[in-house]
Nucleic acid binder design. Structure first.
Lengths: 124, 124
DNA sequence: AGTAAATTACGCACCTTTTTGTAACCACGA
DNA sequence: TCGTGGTTACAAAAAGGTGCGTAATTTACT
């Protein structure tokens, strides 16, 4: 989905939140400041390419803030912006809606639980 | 995004709502019952294949209901299920969040306005 | 002392997988 | 023949994965 088809804010948000990673990253970032490698540990199945791309997208959208500490090994920290924090309950609401809608599985209730550990562990 | 990486309801909802069409279709369906061809008129840029695919997905997710009236030119109607209706305000909230977050464009406020008419008009 | 390896957060190029578009076809009856 | 609501096969496009290179400094070996 690269271009928009309507000029509706809803389509614009979905352009940012669509896909597997944006909401998961927001999920982990609401726990506080995280470094690149922390986020990779949080979801071992994301490739570094995807992670940088998604973080960049969230940054451009004003949802996360990137802080670069120079010095070497070079350290970068990511955290939710105020706008990002305001977004969290809306996403949680979707999760809750889904839980009540589908009689199926119910884990990771909203703010506390962890998204039941991602599967394969690939390091590179 | 075919498979899940966590067992988090949020990832599951996003699997359904991700992409350009799901939210747009829900947007149009909240106006009431629509037929296949109505929805194609509503967003002329969707291909009929995508439309059937997306409608099927929303149907499986319990968001829309499909009613087939047998008869001569064959008529099918789509409408939001109660769960679908409950979802609408949540999506609208995302749109509003985006409007207040981005200083940029503000059209299609939430419930009333129309997603500023899709661009190209391709009929087949 | 000198070289090698590891570290962190990427960018880039190449290749595979997934998604989406295009076009053709089907059934029925007016 | 047209319009309805599809399906299927094939092609194009987009998304995503893999692996290599890079920076400056520390630690590890020889």
């Amino acid at each position: 989905m690269k271009s928009l088809v309507s000029r509706c804010p809803i389509e614009e948000v979905m352009q940012i939140l669509s896909g597997r990673w944006p909401t998961l990253l927001i999920y982990y970032l609401k726990q506080g400041t995280k470094r690149f490698s922390d986020l990779r540990r949080d979801n071992p199945t994301i490739s570094h390419k995807m992670l940088t791309l998604e973080l960049r997208k969230l940054e451009d959208a004003g949802i996360v803030e990137r802080t670069e500490f120079d010095g070497y090994p070079l350290r970068v920290e990511y955290q939710l912006t105020p706008a990002g924090h305001r977004l969290v309950p809306l996403i949680d609401a979707l999760g809750e809606w889904w839980e009540t809608t589908s009689s199926a599985a119910a884990q990771c209730s909203s703010v506390d639980a962890e998204p039941v550990i991602p599967n394969t562990v690939s390091r590179d």
